[in-house]
Design a protein around this nucleic acid. Sequence first.
DNA 1: CTGTTAGCGCTTTCAC
DNA 2: GTGAAAGCGCTAACAG
Lengths: 381, 381
Amino acid sequence: MIKCAKCQQIDFVQKSGIVRGKQRYFCKACDYHFTLPEAVENRKNKPRHQVTIIDIANELGISKSTVSRALRGHTDIHEGTRKMILDLAQQLEYQPNPLANALLKSRTNIVGILVPEFRHYFFPTVIMGAQEILSKAGYNVMICQSDESYETEVANVKALMNSRVDGLLVSVTTQTNNVDHFRTVLRKQVPLVFFNRVCPELDTPQVIVDDYAGAFQAVEHLIQQGYRRIAHLAGPVSLLVSRLRMKGYLDALQKHGLPVDNELIIHYDLTEEKARIYANYLLSLAQPPDAIFAINDPTAIEIMLVAKSRGVKIPQELGIVGFSNDPISAIIEPPLTTVEQPVWEMGRQAARILLEQMENPRIETYQLPTKLIVRGSSMNA
Amino acid sequence: MIKCAKCQQIDFVQKSGIVRGKQRYFCKACDYHFTLPEAVENRKNKPRHQVTIIDIANELGISKSTVSRALRGHTDIHEGTRKMILDLAQQLEYQPNPLANALLKSRTNIVGILVPEFRHYFFPTVIMGAQEILSKAGYNVMICQSDESYETEVANVKALMNSRVDGLLVSVTTQTNNVDHFRTVLRKQVPLVFFNRVCPELDTPQVIVDDYAGAFQAVEHLIQQGYRRIAHLAGPVSLLVSRLRMKGYLDALQKHGLPVDNELIIHYDLTEEKARIYANYLLSLAQPPDAIFAINDPTAIEIMLVAKSRGVKIPQELGIVGFSNDPISAIIEPPLTTVEQPVWEMGRQAARILLEQMENPRIETYQLPTKLIVRGSSMNA
DNA sequence: CTGTTAGCGCTTTCAC
DNA sequence: GTGAAAGCGCTAACAG
C-alpha cells in the first residue's frame, strides 16, 4: 500500500514507530526512513481534504507561521528552509485556501458585475472587456443579470454584497428609479462603478460614451441626407443615456431649423414587443416620419423588420440610424447606419476605474468617444 | 450624538455606567435605560464592520452559540430568547457572513460556469437558463470564458477550483484535446457537468442535443429541396458535436444515394475568418456545391455573407442550413433555415443535473430534442 | 530567523 | 435550554 519515498517499491515498506505524533516508515529494500506526507494520509480519510500549510509544517517539523512566511515570499527566512517548504508545497500541489484569506482580510478578490441582460451584443462585450482587466489584477468575476426588473436588481445587489464582493460594476435596469440599494453599497464602502446606464445622482464614478455628440451626429447626418421628418424612438426617461441622446436629437433638429414634433418622439422600455408596437404606430401616422433615429441597434433592427413587413422601402422611404454598432447591423439588409461606441473599451475602462477606486476613491464621470458609421439604411442618394 | 432608544431624542441622553463591559445610557427625558447596539458602536471604529453574532450576543448578554442556534432555527431554545435574538438581528440588519461558513463547511455556494465565448446567442442563453435554476437553489454563479484557448481554459479551471466552487458547468474549447485538468476536478470530487461541447471520455454527466438527428433532418431537407451537391462546413473533429453532426450529414447523403465528396467536407476551428476563407474556397471549386450545411448559425451566416458578396443567389444557386436558431437567422435575408435546439432549457437541465450531482453522483448523458425550422435560405421551389 | 498566540465569523460537539 | 471550547486555514503582531 505504501510506496517507498526513495526506491518507489511497495513490498519492503514497514512502519517504524511514531515521531512527533507522525507515523514513520522504513524501507527494507533501500534502507530509507521516511514519513508519509501528511496530506497523503489525510486524503485517505477525507477525500476532499486540501493540502494546508499545517500539513506542510507537520511534515517538515516546523511551524505553520514559517511555512506561511516562506509561501508569502517574506525575506527574513533561511534560504534552506524556504527551499524545503517551496519544494514540498509544489510536490503536494499546495493551493492556498482563498476562503481563509477572505475571512481574515474581509477581501474575496471577487468583483460583481450586474447588467440588465446579456442577450444582445452590448453587455457581453462590456463584460469581456472588464474581465480582461480584472482577471489580470487577480480578481474573479461574479455576473448577475437583472432581466430589466428592479426587484431582481435589488435582490442581486443584496446577493452580491452578501457574497462580500470587493467591488461592483453596474448598469441599471430601465425600471430603476429608486437607488437606495446602491446607497447601501456606498455606505458599506464597497467600491461601485456605473457604466452605460448610470446613476449620476450617486457620488461614485460613472463611465459613459459621448451619447450627446453621437446622437447629434446621427441626426445631423439624417438631415444632411435630406430627411426632414425625423422621429426618435427613445429609451425611458429614467436613463441618463436616453436623455442625452434625446438632447442630441433635439439640438440637431434645432440647429437645422427643423420643427420638433412631439408625435414623433416616443419613450419606451426597450423591450422587443414595444419596439415593434411603436414602430408600427409611427409608420401608421397620418404624416409618418421619413426617418427614425433609434436609441440603440436592437431597436433600430426591430424598426427595420417592421418597415420591411409593411413594404416601406429603406432608405428611400424611411431612413434609419441606430446606436452601438452591434455586429448584426452590418449583416442586416440594408446594413444599418449606427453610432459606434467602444464597447469593449468601456468594460476595460470601468474595470480600471473600479480597481483605482479600491486604492484611492475619486468621483468622476468618464466619457468615451463615439463615431458615426454610415451604411445603407440612411443613404438617401 | 446618541439618540434615546425609546423617545428618539438626543439632548437628554447621558452615560450611566458600564455593565458587563458595555457602556449603558440613560435618557433623562423619558427615563429610559438602554445600551447602544454593539454594532453601532463598532461601526464608528471600523466603518466596514458587519454585524456579527457576537455583536448580538454581547448586546443581549448571552453567548454566541445561543444566537447561532436561534438564527439557524434550532428547536431546543427558549421562545423568549429566540424572539429577542431574531428581533435584534432584524433591527441591526444582521447578515450572516458566508465566508465564515464557507471556511467551516468547505462549501462556497458558488458554481463556476466555463464557456468558450459569449459573443453569440448560444452561450449567454445557456448561462441564463443555468442561472435561473442555480440562483433559485441559492447558488451564485462565477462565469469564465476561455476565448477558445486551451491554455485559458486550464487557467480558468484552476482559478475556479482555487475559488473553491461547489460545482462546474463546462463547455470546452475547440482546442481541448487533453482533458487532464478536468480529471483533477473529478479527483477532487467537485461535481462537473459538461454541456454542448462535452467530454464523453470523462465519467461525468453530459448534456447535449440530438445533434445527429438534427443534422440528418437538415441535410435530408436539402436533398428533398432538390440540392444534390451538398457541402458540410464542419467543426473541429475534437468536438463530439462536430462528429455527430457530421455523421448525420453522411447518413442522410447515404440514405438518399448521394455520393460523399471529400472535397465538400471541411473541418474548421469556428473562427469567423476561417469561415469566410472556407466559404470562399467552396464557392470557387471547379464544381462548387449547390448547398451547404453549416455546423452552426454563425458559420451559416458567414457563408451567406460570402455568397452574397460573390453574387451567388440564395437559395436558387446555393441552399444553406445552419444549426441553433440564433435570432439573427430570422433577421438575415433570406432568413436562414436552421435546426432549433432548446438552448435555454439546456442551461436549466445542466444546472439541475449539477445540483443532483452534488447529492448523489450519477453518470449519464442527457439528450435534448432538436427541430428543423425551414426558412428562405433553403426553399428551392 | 522562527515559534507562539490570537483572531477573522461561524457551527458544533460536549458539558452542565 | 444554554455556555464553553474547539476548529475551519490563514496571517500578523509579538517574542525570543
